[in-house]
């Protein structure tokens, strides 16, 4: 019943100056899109999407954004942290032609999804964008898989300047897709959304989470009141179409609305 387990960090990979991937030797039994809550018992417990998971190990990819993640970045291999989960909804594993749209450090859960899609025989296209190459992750990992992969930065440091939504639009013009997935900043998904009117899709959302077990109500989304920790974080088109707060506001730790 208790889903908490305290684990040693098995391996740490530095992705960029501000992004690291932490590996744990533990059979989590997670599905793509799900998340864990992680704490070091020093103040704070945060949700992290699962970047990969199999019967031996799982990993999460973390961007240094605040006090909690800064402390996490000081941890070494062999240090303990405590996790609980996996929690939340997971991505539908489609067949056929699928397009995955990733943004910044939001991309890693799409890697876990990609592996499951490939196992299912899907033909996968991935577009990965970020502000600069310091926020662009998993390029090598995706390129090692049997798929069509493109990346881009807004700064243009890799050549062309643009967003993953620009690349996605090009893909949509070129090819017919059966299912679209997106994970990244909400405003990225918001700008992708108008192009997906005639597609089935799922987006991975992020909200301030506290209990992660569907009780505290901090991560409810207007106007449906569904909890991102239980009914989300992966939400399908039929739900996204109804969300009035999508790309407009979210709630902070006090429950107050904060504009994007």
């Amino acid at each position: 019943m208790d889903k908490r387990v305290t684990l040693k960090i098995a391996k740490i990979i530095k992705e960029t100056d501000t992004i690291k991937t932490f590996f744990f030797e533990h059979e989590l039994g997670a599905k793509p899109g799900q998340f864990i809550m992680l704490t070091d018992f020093e103040g704070g417990e945060k949700p992290f999407s699962i970047a990969d998971s199999n019967s031996q190990e799982f990993c999460i990819t973390v961007k240094k954004v605040g006090e909690f993640t800064a402390r996490l970045f000081t941890k070494k291999e062999g240090d303990y942290v405590s996790i609980r989960g996996p929690y939340g909804s997971s991505f539908f594993i489609s067949a056929g032609n699928v397009l995955l749209v990733g943004g910044g450090y939001g991309t890693p859960p799409l890697y876990f999804l990609t592996k499951k899609l490939l196992e299912n025989g899907a033909k996968v296209s991935v577009v990965n964008g970020a502000k600069t190459k310091d926020d662009l992750v998993f390029c090598d990992k995706f390129q090692k898989l049997e798929l069509e992969y493109k990346n881009i930065t807004q700064s243009g440091c890799l050549g062309r300047a643009g967003t993953s939504v620009d690349l996605a639009c090009e893909c949509l013009r070129r090819k017919k897709y059966d299912f679209i997935y997106a994970a990244g900043p909400e405003m990225m998904m918001k700008s992708l959304y108008p192009y997906l009117e005639n597609y089935q899709f799922e987006f991975l959302f992020e909200r301030y989470m506290k209990c992660a077990i569907g009780i505290c109500g901090n991560c409810t989304i207007d106007p449906l009141g569904i909890r991102l920790c239980v009914e989300g974080p992966v939400l399908p088109k039929k739900i996204v179409d109804k969300l009035t707060e999508f790309g407009k506001y979210h709630r902070d730790a006090t429950g107050k609305r904060v504009k994007f």
């Binding site: 009780i215 505290c216 109500g217 901090n218 409810t220 989304i221 207007d222 106007p223 449906l224 009141g225 569904i226 909890r227 709630r251 429950g255």
Partner: peptide, 16 residues
């Protein structure tokens, strides 16, 4: 109090 009652939508979801 303390359960789902943070937002109007959370209250409505519980009602429904």
């Amino acid at each position: 109090a303390g359960v789902m009652g943070m937002s109007y939508s959370g209250m409505e979801f519980s009602s429904k």
